[in-house]
């Protein structure tokens, strides 16, 4: 609701963003789709030929794809489970009258600000190293054999690292949502004599439902393309044990120089992400009206 003048100006001002984002989205995506239909290898430039959906056929029937897909889903699912459950519990704790709550809060959210390559290397070398890592020492204290994380449980190791990075995110958002819980509702529940567990499941959890959904959706978007943590710790291995779709595409393109096949993989990743994105956009859109 404003005058024509401001409307025209508004359009002019918003145009650069729209044009740039549109190009940013459509040009590379179009190229990826085009490449995915070609036989195209960087090792043999100039020999591109149209092969239709052959790349998809290869990519989708390649056992590596299924391993990568399974790894992706396990990684996303496990990290989500850990961070949401952990996040709710920690947020509940942080909402209590803790002495020095501000400092505790700072400690809890810190990992989120650590760049992925740093957290991956710190965990790999300082904590999970089978000989000199701190975990190995702790195991020995209890008379256990140290775990060689990246050999025996490589995917679990990655899951732990990524969970550590995202736990603060979940906690922070859930805590924010928790703090908007109506104090009077809490008091009304007290007057009603609601036991704590019932209070949690009947009042708190429904109140957090939206925030949890947001956490799940946003984390999923990011977790679908976990990359740096894998690159610097396992390089996708051993074998394909820690290769997710993002890493598989990277390996196919920049290590095997198979542009066509990698592009097909990229499109598969886009499709997967879009399934989640639809839900997220809808949720945010609903919120926009409120």
């Amino acid at each position: 609701m404003a005058t024509r003048q401001t409307h025209i100006l508004g359009r002019i001002l918003v145009a650069p963003s729209i044009v740039l984002l549109f190009l940013w989205m459509i040009v590379p995506l179009g190229m990826t789709i085009w490449f995915s239909l070609l036989r195209y290898s960087l090792l043999d430039p100039g020999s591109e030929s149209f092969v239709g959906l052959l790349n998809y056929q290869y990519f989708l029937t390649d056992p590596a794809f299924f391993t990568a897909l399974a790894n992706t889903l396990v990684l996303v699912g496990a990290v989500l489970a850990i961070t949401v459950v952990g996040g709710v519990l920690i947020a509940l704790l942080m909402d209590q009258p803790i002495f020095g709550r501000g400092i505790v809060r700072l400690m809890v959210i810190a990992p989120f600000f650590v760049m992925p390559t740093v957290s991956a290397l710190v965990w790999k070398n300082l904590l999970m190293h089978p000989v000199s890592g701190l975990f190995a020492w702790v195991s020995k204290l209890f008379g256990l054999t140290p775990v060689d994380w990246f050999t025996d449980y490589p995917l679990l190791a990655i899951i732990l690292i990524v969970s550590w990075q995202w736990l603060p995110f979940a906690t922070l958002i859930l805590l924010t949502a928790l703090q908007s819980f109506d104090e009077e509702q809490k008091e009304a529940a007290q007057m009603d004599g609601t036991p704590p567990l019932a209070f949690f499941f009947l009042m708190i959890l429904p109140h957090l439902a939206r925030a949890i959904t947001v956490v799940i959706l946003i984390e999923t978007i990011f977790l679908l393309s976990v990359f740096a943590e894998i690159l610097v710790t396992t390089g996708g291995g051993p074998g394909l044990a820690t290769t997710n779709i993002a890493f598989l595409v990277y390996a196919q393109a920049l290590l095997q120089y198979d542009i066509g096949g990698a592009s097909a993989g990229g499109i598969v990743a886009v499709v997967l992400a879009n399934i989640v994105a639809i839900f997220l956009v809808r949720l945010v859109g609903k919120n926009l009206d409120a």
């Binding site: 940013w24 590379p28 995506l29 393109a253 920049l254 542009i259 992400a273 997220l280 956009v281 945010v284």
Partner: peptide, 23 residues
């Protein structure tokens, strides 16, 4: 427009890595 802008953020980087790299 706002929601569309948001949706561009959902594009996994790996989906456009190859053309960006080549460009």
């Amino acid at each position: 427009t706002l929601l569309w802008m948001l949706s561009t953020k959902m594009m996994p980087a790996v989906g456009v890595l190859i053309p960006i790299y080549l460009l």
